[in-house]
Design a protein around this nucleic acid. Structure first.
Lengths: 144, 144
DNA sequence: AAATAATTGCAACAATGTTGCAATTATTTA
DNA sequence: TAAATAATTGCAACATTGTTGCAATTATTT
């Protein structure tokens, strides 16, 4: 079995596990996530697939993946929301997204730093934290 | 001198200090920032001013304030970028925005927790950090 | 108070995101 | 495995958000 076939099989399994139909769009989009080593934004899917899918379909696919805990959003200060694959600990009802995100100012790429834990934050009295997002910007390994 | 007049005078001074003309739009928008205890998004200005200003003017005003270091952006995972006033340590060329942002899931309000410092993050080898953004979501003081 | 410089608002556009519905594709059932 | 059912896709149409050029207005300077 070729590497390509293996990837397709793995993606199919992931979709079935999430109780989703295995379709071309979903397979292709997951493939893009798995091949890319960073976060993707909506416009990337047009670029990377050569607009093979309708914009609406891409929006709906991303939303579905979010709902199922397959991908997560990364906060930004620009218009484009970024998405990245979740690790296996994430599920439909519980995200364990406790890693740091890094955005490189040189190449513009955003990556998940899985090894880097989000530190505990000591909030003022009366505040209850459910989720902590850390986005570091600077220069990445490849660009320095 | 009334409280209202004092605020207007303070705003005028802030604008002059930043080498900006003192106009109605800018004064009004800064007034909104100073009166609100949280971050504002573009749509808020329409709501709060009853659409007294053209959308374009509001966009340009916010951009100008960003450039001058009067306000800063707060990252989000939704479409709307949020803005909040900078403290006095910020200037045109250097932001000292090292506080934590908190978004309440109940009331939707985002606030700057000035007292809460951003912790040091230990990045993997090869990564250089310029800026660290921390956004905590949960339940705020008023909503718990 | 006039001259100059900066800001505003309009129009027109571009990009991003959403909804309903009919056609297509995937899954289930027999 | 073919028909029935269920889900997904693509289109059209629209809503929202953000951008640019330019003429009219307003603020600052001389």
């Amino acid at each position: 079995m070729s590497a390509k076939q293996q990837l397709t099989e793995r993606i199919g399994q992931l979709l079935r596990d999430s109780k989703l139909s295995v379709t071309e769009t979903r397979t292709k989009i997951l493939e893009l996530f798995m091949k890319s080593n960073g976060a993707l934004e909506h416009a990337d899917f047009d670029k990377l697939t050569g607009k093979s899918f309708d914009r609406v379909t891409v929006y709906r696919t991303l939303q579905t993946f979010l709902d199922k805990g397959i991908i997560h959003k990364i906060p930004t200060t620009d218009t484009s929301i970024r998405y990245a694959l979740c690790k296996s600990e994430c599920s439909e009802h519980h995200h364990h997204d406790h890693h740091v995100h890094f955005k490189c100012e040189e190449c513009g790429n955003t990556v998940c730093l899985e090894e880097t834990d989000v530190p505990a934050i000591h909030l003022p009295k009366g505040y209850a934290a459910h989720n902590i997002e850390v986005v570091v910007s600077g220069v990445c390994k490849s660009c320095k």
